[in-house]
Computed example of a mutant assay.
Amino acid sequence: MKLENLLRKIESVQQKIQFSGTIFTKQGTDSLASISFGYSNRSEKIENEVNTKYGIASGCKVFTAIAICQLIEKGELSFDSKLQNCLPFEFPHFDENITVHHLLTHTSGIPDYFDEEVMNDFEELWIKTPMYHIRNLQDFLPLFKNEEMKYPAGAKFQYNNSGYILLGLIIEQITGMSFSEYVETNIFQRAGMLDSGYFEMDALPAKTAIGYIDFSDGTWKTNIYSLPVKGGSDGGAYVTAPDMMKLWESLTNYKLLSESITKQMLTPHAHEVEGLSYGYGIWIEKNDEEVSKYLLMGYDPGVNFHAAFYPKRDLKIVVCVNTSKGAYDMISGIEEVLALSNS
């Protein structure tokens, strides 16, 4: 009966918000729901499917965190390593005490290249720096490397994309590989995420959802001019919902990292004002001092993503969306039916 209620709720949310994307839910080894709605290509009326590839925006900061933790396990780096000792670039105004830990936890205080105090629309970034020039991590540096610090290192939590760009550059510096090559080899392949990758928006592979930006008058446009051509260490990978499920399973079964460093990654290190905490690349929700949910979230024009793991239930939910919103409504509806609000 609960499964029937779950499917009815998913259908209800879809009808209410015109949800476009894929929902995949598993408890243990049992699939509870695997369902898709809408079009991956509206012009050609190609429907979204369970194996459609979706952009996940900042949801893939977890890949960067895993990669950094892998290098720490190998002794190539430490959480206390100083930024100034890790990269050959000049950051004239940056605090010399910034560490890898600060970058991982959004507590570095460095300027964010997308500063929401200065601009509301991500598309504003590409007026002076066309998005088609952003194909490598170093291409992001002119957007923030000469700016002033926002606050001293370690003073507080403030979500920061620039910090994750720097983490990606550290990975490149240590390994001699491009960031995307490292992640695809050492995370995606090891986890069996064979349909996922850092694809360029002007050369997308088959079965990849185009992102759509909807307007109040019923018109829409694609997001090809709204995002960097190729995603990086702060966001922009493409995954399928089943592949993201494999990521959860590989991470929590210690296939990507040792148990000890996985637990460090999943420990709350910084606290955000809305009640969520942040580990390394992952949001954490606690209830009475016990972790109730681990959460990945991504928001970009034409991209929306939520993936949650509820450890007490061994329950995992992945919601991939190829419009600018809908993932929160869908995952909230699923939580309501499965009585997960306090689990």
Rank of each mutant, 00 (worst) to 15 (best):
5 N>E: 09
9 K>C: 08
13 V>D: 00
14 Q>T: 06
16 K>M: 02
23 I>E: 10
29 T>W: 04
31 S>Q: 12
31 S>F: 13
35 I>N: 03
39 Y>V: 03
40 S>E: 15
44 E>L: 15
45 K>S: 09
60 C>P: 07
61 K>M: 14
67 A>I: 06
75 G>C: 04
79 F>H: 08
89 F>C: 02
90 E>G: 00
98 I>D: 08
101 H>T: 06
102 H>D: 05
104 L>Q: 10
108 S>M: 01
108 S>H: 00
112 D>G: 09
113 Y>Q: 07
118 V>A: 15
119 M>K: 10
122 F>R: 08
122 F>L: 03
125 L>R: 05
134 I>F: 06
137 L>T: 05
140 F>S: 09
140 F>R: 07
151 Y>F: 13
159 Y>N: 12
160 N>F: 01
168 G>I: 11
177 M>E: 14
178 S>W: 13
179 F>Y: 15
184 E>I: 01
197 G>M: 10
203 A>D: 15
209 A>I: 07
209 A>Q: 09
212 Y>V: 04
213 I>Q: 02
215 F>D: 06
238 Y>T: 06
240 T>D: 02
240 T>I: 08
247 L>G: 11
248 W>T: 10
256 L>G: 15
263 K>D: 08
267 T>D: 01
272 E>C: 02
273 V>T: 09
273 V>R: 14
283 W>Q: 14
283 W>P: 01
284 I>E: 08
287 N>A: 05
305 F>I: 06
305 F>K: 07
321 V>P: 00
328 Y>W: 01
340 L>N: 09
